[in-house]
Design a protein around this nucleic acid. Structure first.
Lengths: 334, 334
DNA sequence: CTGAAAGCGCTTACAG
DNA sequence: CTGAAAGCGCTTACAG
């Protein structure tokens, strides 16, 4: 910048102002300065600027796994929103390791990030969140709760959503319904399991303990759970899966065993990923508003950046059932 | 830092040294300083440090789409390598839009990033790469070439790899083999198509123009190409797909039409994604060394950071055929 | 082993 | 409308 200033015989203050299109600088001066900047191949140094202004233009986004299509869809809409306001976003996976998450948060602090969008790792203590807030870094949560942390959170109404899937199966005539996937260590896992149990109870149906195969959260996991499910004595005729990935994996596993998902066993997913509609058979699932979650979370954070007052959030997104070919009436005789 | 210095009656220089474990500082002083830093909740300001040292600890990674499992697998191994040397990595999608890619590169320059790992967007001119190098930013390419750019590149031997798949089908007795997916706008697309054509030629087989359905690169794309393929007159008995995603989508589409992939139509993929082995039927494909690509690219970049001399790369990764259930002999009578 | 001083490249009052 | 000066929080010669 001083090179530009010298070459034109003006002050660096004027250059700084001109490059940011300040009305304080005469039109002609501004033009000359911009021209010189171009000619000299000037590169704006954001570190220096941010050191002075205390705004970095960086927003951190940290989730369990960015390559998981569920988060991928959320991230895309976050990306769209942040791009619009020219924020750079720093992505990271924490793989549900608290240490990785803390390392990332430290990095964010050191870089002077303006805010954080976080889907907290399993076991995240409230203090980790409040410490951030105390350091003046706005934060919004997505997908998962952190008990006792008073920050905006955006997610779907899991208990309600899973009841949609469960009730759909019940209305088709299924009475023995299993639930596969998810973990009680996350609020999402607990909420969905509770929703399933409640829906069964309301319909006067019993739930056998071995009908709950907890754990799987990926396609691979669902695939591997298939044999265990198929081996159940007095096997359930339908399965509520924790998410679409588990459901698709499970259906693949069922097909491998020579049975036909949607005919021999009804299967529901959760999330309505893009993939759900092209699965074979097309997956009956619950739309979970990923796009909406991402959009709202990003907006809420941006609002906080521009106005420390703003502090919304918390309204749950209302899930919707999507009926496709992976569910049907129980086969006669089962 | 000056707060720490004041509270202890030492200079900031000493504090700086102590916090970085310099042997220049007496053990006892070091301890006192670190203790004070902890007590005061000191946060290291990387912007300030980097302004002074001209190293930011940031490495940029830019690909077509980080949520695509192909890149996802590469990114995971890049992540592992960079974590090890405590570099923060800034991820971005360019979605094959040159403008997005340029914006990201600009951001990197402004943040003073130490280097870039890039899978270049379609149409990236050589000048974009050389300009970066001229600005002193080390760069390595992955997956795709940029003609005339003299920088390290890491990728598989695509022409060779696709010939493995093609020859496998030929050896099973197929003579009419289609190729679905990919675009001639990328080196990868051209190489794979060329490899397929060559393999067919060497076996004395002809390739009808309508057997090439260019374009699809995703599951959705493969799924949508199914009807077009199935409608071909004198339909090929086998399909070489551009990648696993297209192959899996295509198989879903074929199933939807009531045919059985692997029996009625043989299908091969490319990349050997984790998903390939749990697809139904399990996908015959070509292992493309994603992990290896990521690992080598990250190492090469780190080497360049630590020693401007280093400048390796260019050896192609040798693909391998993985035979599973999606390929078989052509059905009698076809 | 420790301190005083300069400087990285910006922006922001303040003065004119 | 423009300039001189201070300062953001570090690190690095240099001197002692």
């Amino acid at each position: 910048m001083s090179t530009i200033a010298d070459s034109l015989g003006v002050s660096t203050a004027t250059v700084s102002l001109a490059l940011r299109d300040s009305a304080l600088v005469a039109e002609s001066t501004r033009e000359r300065i911009k021209e010189a900047a171009r000619a000299l191949g000037y590169i704006y140094n954001r570190r220096a600027a941010s050191l002075r202004t205390r705004r970095s233009g960086i927003v951190g986004v940290c989730v369990h796994d960015i390559m998981n299509p569920f988060f991928a869809e959320i991230l895309r809409s976050i990306e769209t929103e942040l791009d619009r306001s020219r924020q750079t976003f720093l992505l990271s996976n924490h793989y549900d390791e608290l240490e990785k998450q803390r390392l990332f948060i430290d990095t964010l602090l050191q870089l002077g990030a303006d805010g954080l969008i976080l889907s907290p790792a399993i076991g995240t203590p409230r203090e980790d969140i409040t410490a951030l807030v105390a350091n003046g870094m706005p934060i919004v949560l997505i997908a998962r709760e952190v008990e006792g942390a008073d920050v905006p959170i955006f997610r779907g109404d899991d208990a309600w959503g899973i009841s949609l899937a469960t009730n759909h199966l019940i209305s088709l005539g299924h009475t023995r319904i299993a639930m596969i996937g998810g973990t009680d260590q996350t609020s999402t896992g607990r909420d969905r399991h509770r929703g399933y149990v409640n829906a069964m109870g309301k319909a006067g149906l019993t739930v056998e303990p071995e009908w709950r195969i907890a754990g799987p959260r990926t396609k691979q996991g669902g695939f591997e759970a298939a044999p265990q499910f198929l081996a159940l004595k007095n096997r359930p005729t339908a399965v509520v899966c924790w998410n679409d990935l588990v459901a698709i994996g499970l259906m693949n596993g069922i097909s491998r065993a020579g049975l036909t998902p949607g005919v021999d066993v009804s299967v529901t997913g959760y999330d309505d990923l893009e993939e759900a509609s092209i699965a074979t058979p097309a997956l009956t699932t619950v739309w979970n508003g990923q796009r909406e979650v991402g959009r709202r979370a990003a907006r809420a954070l941006l609002d906080q950046l521009n106005d420390a007052e703003a502090h919304g959030g918390q309204e749950l997104i209302h899930p919707e059932l999507r009926i496709r070919q992976s569910t049907g009436k129980p086969k006669a005789g089962l």
